[in-house]
Nucleic acid binder design. Structure first.
Length: 859
RNA sequence: GCGAGAGUGGCGGAAUGGCAGACGCACUGGACUUAGGAUCCAGCGGGCAACCGUGGGGGUUCGAGUCCCCCCUCUCGCACCA
């Protein structure tokens, strides 16, 4: 034996082989069943991290498995390439976002190739490629045509110092992440996608997503947040106008004693105009709008408000309700105005206490009488209506419907549905994104860029360091254009699109990444869509997956795709975690900075902290690069698969990695030590009457094929698939083939080993290719057929039957697998170990589970 | 508060309602060795034992880690939603 396992050599060799042979390139083949496997594409941040390795390894196993099963597998990879980090990096390194992004892509592509993923690299795309964002602009125009893209004023996070809009994620403790200046809400004109148009469908078709994890479906359902209620009009005193509220509690209408408006509600300022309260309202609104959203929406924030000076009239009681502006009312929910029922809503109660407003009880709990003056908290449960005219005495649940119907009859209200889901604001005042293809003309207003003028190209010569404006707004050559309608000078829209737009349709574009006649080549997309299996992190459970679903429905309505839903099956993999270490003096420590529980810098005690997601800030990261350098890609892949099932968090363990490496060595040695013998052994027809360990080994071999196929196919439980192969390998180590020249034994050994290699190949492809070759087999494992098992061989001919007496294990017997039930029962009752437990007892019942156990009930 | 998921040896994790702890890690002992941090072999939940053991308490069942009810803890999502 002179052949050593040299992972890097063989990995390079086979990666080159797959590359040169285009082993994973696919094309549309109507004769073959298609399978589209997709992992969420990465942001090209610079380097691959362990989360990527895990995600893409899981996907790769399934892709390779499906390929071996004979399916036509599409398994593409690309780059979610627009976004802010590129701009920041460019500013820092005084280079260009495009340069930074593309060089990261080059680096990361090489890293992915070194892990041996089976991508069809011919289909690679980057969302910042002109051909990609050009067709996205067309999609925008189509959506604009249909009223699905529109512009409106809305409140955004605004940093006055930087003069820019910030995404929610860019607001840290109420301050701008860059300049640390206070962030406030500001009303700006922004572009939106009318996702609410599809709210009902997005909600309803969740039911068809049986291949999605329940919790993701639930999260989306909550996010869309459909609630049924009533819209009620409250006439404003001395005015023809009315305030409309949305309530899920119309039953409490008779108890509404005042009105609360959101500070963002334009009525707040307009109602108080020219009253004594004008200054107070203005000051209050300004103050609240300046507050950080997270502070403002925390539940323990003190309820505060200010009277507007105006009143409205309760439509059923005629009660003169003072109108307040209140800090806890949200503009985003309902109509931004709430009818306040202090007796039956805790917030309204607290507010009424503070400002001594009327409390009127309209619901009594069964057998109890509430007194408004004696209450210390709102009564929010069900009960019987009181003080409610003709509805008095009715159960409040029934009254909801009755009161709504009454209001509808009077023209003062109606049944209504409210969604939590809001239209998707896609405007970003950034450079490195897809320019929104619109033009502002003083004469014609907002005009779309004609399709024939697409793409609106991102200019290269921009200064990213401009403070005070979006970089595009500073770039005259970009800004200045002519109006396509009237031909006069006009300005381009300088907002770019949210990067979530690019990731909302990339999965369809993989079907035709080079297509230049439109966004999608309908026939090819029809062949590949939907994605049969989508794999990615749970962190995208709402936003990305919801936007992608929305886009798919829009694309369907544009006639570009033929499916209602983009992802038939979804697997959300867990995070990669690791223990953290902390020293009181030095803070977070890398594991190598800890020696015998002490910090190697200051010798102070190093505490083992919680197990947390790998992150640079807690310094508990492992760079896949160093892992691969040390053990090779196959070991990295094996560890990711073996340490935990995919949907769970994976806890990093150096020892576990070594264990994975050792297993590969074990397999390697089995082949290397016997390669001559294995190569010499040709195809052997096994006799029917095999016995002893030859038969045992063949049985184990075929059982393993069955188990591994099942684990990969139906459950994605790669950890148990691997352990099954480990068992087979352990058995092979018991099987001393070196001293044996019985051709039947050698053949059984060879069969087992070949199967082990085939079964492992989707998981650790490089070593398997090499071993396959070493065993004298031609061709490449990646395109070999997945083995099938023979149930006859897999079947045990003798089984152990467990005997229970009153549910407790009392004995075991061996019987033929096909022994008749009566015979097994008889044998069980006669079993020596069991007899003492039956003595002097009445046997009430004997239950037999064929092949498993006999359960005896005695008294 | 609402919703979802989870809780099993020293650790990661296995178990269509049917022998709890597969497989791996760690550990212990042995073999081979100049050496062993390589490799191979064996052992490995607790208890001397009867037995006891899957977060706690009930229940269904011949039989419960698994199903049902209550409770505790943790993780995630949403949350002043009117």
């Amino acid at each position: 034996m002179d052949t050593q396992y040299k992972p890097h050599e063989i990995e390079e060799k086979w990666q080159r082989f797959w590359d040169e042979n285009k082993s994973f390139a696919v094309s549309e083949d109507p004769e073959k069943e298609k399978y589209y496997l997709l992992e969420m594409f990465p942001y090209p941040s610079g380097r691959i991290h362990m989360g990527h390795v895990r995600n893409y390894t899981i996907g790769d196993v399934v892709a390779r498995y499906k390929t071996m099963k004979g399916l036509n597998v599409l398994h593409p990879m690309g780059w979610d390439a627009f976004g802010m980090p590129a701009e920041n990096a460019a500013i820092q390194s005084k280079s260009h976002p495009a340069k930074w992004t593309y060089s990261n892509i080059d680096m990361m592509r090489e890293q992915l190739k070194r892990i041996g993923f089976s991508y069809d690299w011919d289909r690679e795309l980057a969302t910042c490629d002109l051909i990609y964002y050009k067709w996205e602009q067309l999609l925008f125009l189509k959506m604009y045509e249909r009223g699905l893209a529109y512009r409106k004023k809305s409140f955004v996070n605004w940093c006055d110092k930087c003069q820019t809009v910030l995404a929610n994620e860019q607001v840290e403790n109420g301050c701008c992440w860059r300049c640390k200046d206070e962030v406030q809400l500001k009303e700006l004109n922004q572009w939106f996608f009318r996702i609410t148009e599809y709210a009902d469908e997005l909600l309803e078709s969740l039911d068809s997503l049986s291949g999605w994890p329940e919790r993701v479906v639930t999260m989306q359902r909550n996010w869309i947040g459909k609630s049924y209620g009533t819209e009620i009009e409250f006439g404003i005193e001395n005015s023809d106008d009315a305030i409309t509220v949305f309530t899920t509690r119309p039953d409490t209408l008779y108890g509404a004693t005042f009105m609360s408006l959101a500070p963002e509600n334009p009525l707040a300022l307009s109602l108080s105009k020219d009253t004594d309260q004008e200054a107070a309202v203005q000051a209050f609104v300004e103050r609240v709008l300046k507050q950080d959203k997270t502070v403002r929406s925390s539940e323990d924030l003190e309820k505060e408000g200010v009277f507007t000076g105006a009143y409205c009239i309760n439509p059923v009681t005629g009660f003169r309700m003072p109108i307040y502006v209140a800090n806890f009312v949200l503009m985003e929910y309902g109509t931004g105005a709430v009818m306040a029922v202090p007796a039956h809503d805790q917030r309204d109660y607290e507010f009424a206490q503070k400002y001594t407003l009327d409390v009127k009880v309209v619901i009594q709990p069964e057998g109890e009488e509430l007194d408004a003056a004696a209450m210390t908290a709102a009564y929010v449960d069900d009960g019987v209506l009181v003080n409610s005219d003709q509805f008095t005495g009715r159960n409040n649940r029934e009254a909801m419907k009755a009161i709504t119907e009454y209001l509808a009859g009077e023209g003062k209200g109606r049944q209504a549905i409210n969604f939590r889901l809001k239209d998707w604001g896609i405007s970003r005042q950034r450079y490195w994104g897809n320019p929104i293809p619109m033009i502002h003309c003083d004469a014609c207003g907002i005009v779309p860029v004609p399709e024939s003028d697409l793409p609106v190209v991102l200019p290269e010569d921009v200064s990213l360091e401009v403070v005070g404006k979006s970089p595009l707004a500073e770039c005259d050559s970009f800004m200045q254009t002519t109006c396509p309608t009237c031909g006069k000078p006009a300005r381009r829209e300088t907002d770019t699109m949210d990067t979530f737009v690019e990731s909302s349709w990339y999965f369809a574009r993989y079907a035709c990444p080079e297509f230049d006649q439109g966004p999608l080549d309908v026939d090819r997309v029809k062949y590949w869509m939907p994605v049969d299996q989508y794999i990615g992190g749970i962190e995208h459970a709402v936003l990305h997956l919801l936007y992608a679903r929305f886009f798919t429905k829009v694309l369907r309505d544009l006639g570009l795709v033929a499916v209602d839903e983009p992802f038939a099956n979804l697997l959300t993999q867990g995070m990669v975690c690791m223990e953290t270490y902390q020293c009181d003096k030095c803070g977070w420590l890398y594991p190598e900075e800890v020696q015998d529980g002490k910090c190697s810098t200051c010798s102070g005690p190093a505490r083992i902290g919680r197990t947390e997601k790998m992150s640079k800030s807690t310094r508990n990261v492992v760079d896949p690069e160093s892992l691969i350098e040390r053990y090779g890609a196959d070991t990295a892949r094996l560890f990711c698969l073996f340490a935990a099932p995919p949907e769970r968090d994976l806890e990093w363990s150096d020892k576990g990695v070594e264990g994975s490496y050792r297993f590969l060595l074990r397999v390697w040695r089995l082949v290397a030590e016997h390669s001559e013998k294995l190569c010499a052994s040709g195809q052997v027809a096994f006799q029917d009457d095999l016995a002893g360990d030859i038969k045992d080994l063949r049985r184990k071999t075929h059982q393993t094929i069955q188990k591994v196929s099942d684990d990969i196919d139906t459950r994605f439980h790669f950890n148990t698939a691997i352990s099954a192969v480990m068992e087979l390998v352990n058995q092979l180590y018991q099987y001393d083939v070196a001293k044996d020249d019985n051709p039947m034994r050698v053949a059984a050994f060879k069969e087992a080993l070949e199967m082990a290699v085939l079964l492992l190949s989707p998981m650790v492809p490089h070593i398997c290719e090499e071993l396959w070759q070493m065993m004298g087999r031609d061709g490449c494992v990646a395109v070999a057929s997945w083995p099938s098992f023979d149930p006859e061989i897999a079947k045990a001919d003798e089984v152990e039957i467990v005997i229970q007496v009153n549910g407790k294990l009392r004995g075991k017997i061996l019987t033929a697998a096909d022994a008749p039930e009566d015979e097994v029962k008889e044998k069980a009752l006669a079993c020596e170990q069991v007899k003492p437990w039956l003595e002097g007892k009445d046997i009430k019942k004997v239950i037999s589970v064929p092949g498993k156990l006999v359960s005896i009930v005695v008294k």
